[in-house]
């Protein structure tokens, strides 16, 4: 599933919205490729991916280059390049039974 702008660009006009190809790699070995705009928040891509894979968005952790992906930023701001991969992990939390009794 690719996110693309609906407006078609005529030949010869400069590309105002350049795109990059990103790879979403989940831990079950599945890889999905997307083309996204560089100036759009990456969150929209992640939400679309979770919807497609039937994951709960809040239960996932997206790691890019060893760092948790800042979802409110654009690929340009993050410094992503073409064919970069985003690893998808499950969110983990723990605290013991005593902590759970406080809730």
């Amino acid at each position: 599933m690719a996110i693309s702008s609906k407006a078609k660009r005529s030949i010869g006009t400069p590309n105002l919205h350049p795109k990059i190809m990103l790879c979403m790699k989940s831990q079950d070995g599945d890889e999905v490729h997307y083309r996204v705009r560089r100036d759009r928040k990456i969150q929209s891509l992640l939400m679309a991916y979770c919807k497609e894979k039937n994951f709960e968005y809040k239960a996932m952790v997206f790691v890019y280059d060893g760092r948790k992906l800042p979802v409110k930023r654009t690929p340009d701001e993050i410094g992503m390049e073409d064919e970069d991969c985003i690893d998808v992990f499950m969110h983990q939390s723990g605290g013991g039974y005593l902590a759970s009794t406080f809730e």
């Binding site: 800042p70 969110h91 605290g95 902590a99 406080f102």
Partner: peptide, 25 residues
């Protein structure tokens, strides 16, 4: 911006509040 992730208010609140659990972050 921390070294591993961006930490919002909840990140610090989780640390302060004893009733909340630690996350992977």
């Amino acid at each position: 911006a921390l070294a591993i992730c961006d930490a919002g208010r909840t990140f610090f609140e989780d640390l302060r509040d004893q009733s909340r659990w630690l996350t992977g972050d």
